[in-house]
Nucleic acid binder design. Sequence first.
DNA 1: TTACAATATTCCAAAACAGGAATGTAGTCA
DNA 2: TGACTACATTCCTGTTTTGGAATATTGTAA
Lengths: 126, 126
Amino acid sequence: MGKAVMTSRSESFEAVADLFSVLADLTRLKILHLLEGQPAFVSAVVKRLKLKQANVSKHLSVMYDAGLVDRERNGNQIRYSVGDPLVFELCNLVCQKFHREAQSKARILRRSRLGISFKTIRKALR
Amino acid sequence: MGKAVMTSRSESFEAVADLFSVLADLTRLKILHLLEGQPAFVSAVVKRLKLKQANVSKHLSVMYDAGLVDRERNGNQIRYSVGDPLVFELCNLVCQKFHREAQSKARILRRSRLGISFKTIRKALR
DNA sequence: TTACAATATTCCAAAACAGGAATGTAGTCA
DNA sequence: TGACTACATTCCTGTTTTGGAATATTGTAA
């Protein structure tokens, strides 16, 4: 997950892929969602999500290295916060896609009760 | 990579993570970029990107299952096309982020020649 | 300093993933 | 039908990634 300066097209693709891979983890998405509400200490994330401390710490480090979260020391603890609202824009776009798909599937199913063939339905459902 | 109907919050997070993981691969991003220009047969992708046929076929299948590309048989060949412009919206958002970061780093470096301490720079660069 | 709390890091095992080679399948043409 | 082409799938291997346990680091308080 190198943080090299972008020069060639291929390198920037790699950077994009790296960022997507940071978001391609269920636990990290849960943590981000928790941080969306408000910043939180590591220990709070551990408690709320019932995860191991080392696990949370590693995931937060990955996201920090990717520039997705900020951190701020507060005495003994470290408060993490979402550093770039980009994260939620990306997730919302994906969720919108799922909504569109769910709606079109529902539309097709509704139509199916009005007499469209199974073949057409299966094709429309991909 | 299940395509289950979404019910709980956690399941939808998982679907989002799955979609990001499809995009978290350099080869798949290259293929998508190629398909952005115009639809292409598998053999064309193999030639343009100098990849193995089995490799391309597998990546296209993954993206097809994820609903990111469409396919259409044409005689002996199969033409793939980008099925959801969402892909490019996502990539563009990520690229914009990288641009913002690159610019702010450049700004800081420029300022550094005007006499700001290394400590400040390092902190600003994270 | 010592003891303790919060977080980070290292090491390990299991699971997931990408790519190559070989094989399977489906369409075309003769 | 058989030969050929385009694509998909299976099997295998090396690499990466995740999570847990143990350990290390950093800060606080006495």
